[in-house]
C-alpha cells in the first residue's frame, strides 16, 4: 500500500513533466498531439549518446554521484538531451505542424501527429535497435525505509523526484513572475489580442515547443534511469500523459502537475486490486471516470 503510493509518486513526477509540455501545446495550438510522448524517447536516447560520448572523453565523469546511479556524465548529458529534444520539437513544428496549421484544420494536426509519432518511434528503433538498454549496468539496491509496512526505495527514485520538483518550481517562477510567462498565458487566452499587444506569435509558439521538449527530455531520462530505454517508451507513455492532462484540465500547467501525480498514484494503487497485466488500461479508465464526473478536468475551463 505505502509502497504503491511511493512508486506512484515517482511515476507521477515523470508523467507531470511530460504532461506540462503537452497541456501547453494542446491549449495554445488546440490539438491533441499524439507525438508528444515520443519526445521522451528522443530525450532518453540522446542522453544515452551524450553519456557514452562524455564518459569516453573524460572517464572521470563516469563516476557515480553519491549513492545514485546517476553520474556526472549523465547529468551533463541530460542537459544536452534537453537542448536536442527542445530543438527537435521546434523543428517538427516548423516542418510539419506549422504548415498544416496554416491550412487551418485542427483535426489534420491530430492526424499528422499520429504519423509523426510513428516515424519518430520507428526511426529510433532503426538507429538504436529494438532491444532495451540501460544507462548503467550496475545494480543499485533499494534501501529499506521501513519493514512494516514494507517500504523499499532506491536512491535514484529520491533523486528523480527532487529533480522533477525542482524543474517544476523553476517553471512556476518563469510563468508567474516573468513577462515571458505573462506572454505565454496571454497567447493561450487570446492569440489575436496578444499579437496586437506586441507579442510575436511564432516566437512564443516556438518557445512553447522548446520548453515542452526540454521537460519531456528530462522526463525521458528519469524514466530511463528507473526503468529501461527502448523505442516504445512513447507508445507506453502516451496514454498516461494524456490522462494527466485531461485530469488536470487542458491548458492548466498546475493541473498537469497534479494530474501527473494523480494518474501515477492511481495507476499504482489500481494494481493492488487488478492483475498487473492490466496496467496499460488503467490510464484510460481514469480518463473515462473523469469525463463522467468532470469533463473539463480539475482546473480546466470549458472550451469550444
Amino acid at each position: 500500500m505505502i509502497q504503491s503510493l511511493a512508486d506512484g509518486i515517482l511515476v507521477g513526477a515523470i508523467l507531470s513533466l511530460g504532461a506540462i509540455g503537452l497541456t501547453m501545446v494542446m491549449h495554445i495550438l488546440r490539438f491533441a498531439n499524439f507525438s508528444h510522448a515520443e519526445l521522451l524517447s528522443i530525450g532518453a536516447y540522446s542522453a544515452l549518446v551524450f553519456d557514452a560520448l562524455f564518459s569516453g572523453i573524460l572517464p572521470i565523469l563516469a563516476n557515480k554521484i553519491g549513492p545514485f546511479s546517476m553520474t556526472w556524465a549523465l547529468t551533463l548529458s541530460m542537459f544536452c538531451a534537453m537542448g536536442v529534444t527542445g530543438l527537435s520539437a521546434m523543428l517538427i513544428d516548423r516542418f510539419v505542424f506549422k504548415r498544416i496549421r496554416e491550412k487551418g484544420d485542427e483535426l489534420s494536426m491530430v492526424f499528422a501527429s499520429f504519423g509523426v509519432a510513428m516515424i519518430i518511434r520507428n526511426v529510433l528503433g532503426l538507429i538504436f535497435g529494438l532491444k532495451s538498454q540501460l544507462y548503467s549496468n550496475d545494480i543499485v539496491f533499494a534501501v529499506m525505509i521501513s519493514s512494516d509496512p514494507m517500504l523499499l526505495i532506491k536512491p535514484d527514485q529520491v533523486f528523480v523526484l527532487l529533480a522533477a520538483l525542482l524543474i517544476m518550481l523553476v517553471l512556476h517562477f518563469v510563468l508567474s513572475r516573468t513577462t515571458f510567462g505573462y506572454a505565454l498565458r496571454a497567447v493561450a487566452e487570446n492569440p489575436s489580442l496578444a499579437e496586437v499587444s506586441g507579442i510575436r506569435l511564432s516566437r512564443v509558439i516556438a518557445l512553447v515547443w522548446i520548453i515542452g521538449g526540454c521537460l519531456a527530455a528530462a522526463a525521458g531520462v528519469f524514466y530511463g534511469l528507473n526503468n529501461h530505454i527502448n523505442p516504445v517508451i512513447g507508445r507506453d507513455l502516451v496514454l498516461p500523459i494524456f490522462a494527466a492532462t485531461i485530469v488536470g484540465g487542458i491548458g492548466s500547467v498546475y493541473g498537469a502537475v497534479l494530474g501527473g501525480f494523480i494518474v501515477g498514484i492511481a495507476a499504482n494503487m489500481a494494481l493492488l486490486v487488478l492483475p498487473s497485466g492490466y496496467s496499460p488500461a488503467v490510464p484510460f479508465m481514469i480518463i473515462l471516470a473523469l469525463l463522467l464526473v468532470r469533463p473539463h478536468g480539475l482546473f480546466g475551463e470549458p472550451q469550444t
Binding site: M26, R30, F31, A32, F34, E106, L107, V110, V238, L239, F242, I246, I250, P275, G277, Y278, P280, A281, P283, F284, M285, I287, L288, L291, P295, Q303, T304
Partner: peptide
C-alpha cells in the same frame, strides 16, 4: 466534448481493448 477528447478516448479504447483481450 472538444474534438481532441474524442481522438484521445478512441485511442484509449484501442489500447484498453488489446490489453483486455491479452489478459
Amino acid at each position: 466534448l472538444r474534438h481532441d477528447y474524442f481522438a484521445i478516448a478512441t485511442f484509449g479504447v484501442a489500447v484498453t481493448f488489446e490489453n483486455v483481450m491479452r489478459n
